[in-house]
Amino acid sequence: MRTFALVAALACAAAPAWAQVALQGMMGNRALLIVDGSPPKPVAPGETHRGVKVVSTAGDQAVVEVDGRRLTLRVGEAPASVGGAAAPQGAKIVLTAGSGGHFLTEGRINDKAAYFMVDTGATSIGMGAADAERLGIDYKGGQPVRMGTANGMTLGWRVTLSSVRIRDVEVRDVEAVVSQASMPYILLGNSFLNRFQMRRENDQMVLERRY
């Protein structure tokens, strides 16, 4: 019985049903993988780390495989969920303020990498046209709106994002506004934040899902 339990535990450790995987960088032909928040580990093609196998590397990207599913990772992109089963849906996000006091975080919009800055004064998620185009959002098919900025009024479009994910927490059907003016960050506004109970703990912001 003990032998069976040990074998089962090792099998689970070697081949997780899902994993959050990020590519931090490259060391020659080895990929610096971060799996489920673990320290970066250089992994060569053909080698496996925590159930994630590196199939090949080239330039700033690596192809990995988990439970038979392959995914291409690129340096600097937000962590991706890979595996044979769907990732569990989390209910809590903890963000730590940066040196300027702002809460910045990586995430995904419609399953593409995005970089957010929390803005509790913004009615909805806000982004510039360049980010919208990179994310494949057909914003010009949205509802035209007039937006006030520090430089005056500008044209924008109201759209609905199919999915917004931060770590293992995903929210669907989130309103956003795309501005024709450039923006340094994607603003994580109240169309996302209102889905959570929000509180501050020293330099941390804790978001706990309402629904």
Rank of each mutant, 00 (worst) to 15 (best):
V178Q: 03
F192A: 08
N194G: 14
L188H: 11
P184C: 02
L187C: 03
N190Y: 07
R165A: 08
V159H: 00
S179T: 13
Q197R: 14
M183R: 01
M183D: 04
W157G: 00
L161M: 03
I166W: 01
V174Q: 09
S162C: 01
D168I: 00
Q197P: 00
L187V: 04
W157H: 13
V178P: 00
R165Y: 00
S163R: 14
R195I: 03
T160Y: 01
A176M: 13
D173E: 14
V171T: 03
V174F: 03
I186K: 07
T160L: 07
T160E: 11
R172P: 08
R167I: 06
S162Q: 11
S163N: 09
T160F: 02
S182Y: 00
E175K: 07
A181H: 14
E175N: 11
L187P: 03
L188E: 11
L188N: 08
L187I: 05
S182D: 06
W157S: 02
L188R: 10
F196W: 13
Q180T: 13
L161S: 03
M183C: 06
Q197C: 06
R195M: 09
W157I: 02
A176K: 10
L193F: 07
R158K: 10
L193C: 12
F192C: 04
P184L: 00
N190E: 09
M183P: 10
V178D: 05
V178A: 08
V174P: 05
V178C: 05
V178R: 04
V171C: 10
V164A: 09
Q180I: 15
V178N: 03
A176C: 13
V159W: 05
Q197G: 05
V174L: 07
V169F: 01
V178F: 12
F196N: 06
F196Y: 14
N190P: 08
M183L: 15
V178S: 06
R195K: 13
S182C: 01
I186Y: 13
Y185G: 11
N190S: 06
Y185E: 14
S191I: 12
W157E: 01
L187Q: 05
N194R: 05
N194W: 12
L187E: 09
N194A: 15
N190H: 02
D173P: 00
S163D: 11
R172C: 08
E175D: 14
V178I: 12
V164H: 09
G189F: 12
S163I: 01
A176I: 10
N190L: 04
R167L: 07
F196V: 08
M198G: 06
R165I: 01
V174W: 01
I186H: 12
F196I: 10
D173Y: 09
M183V: 02
I166H: 08
Q180V: 15
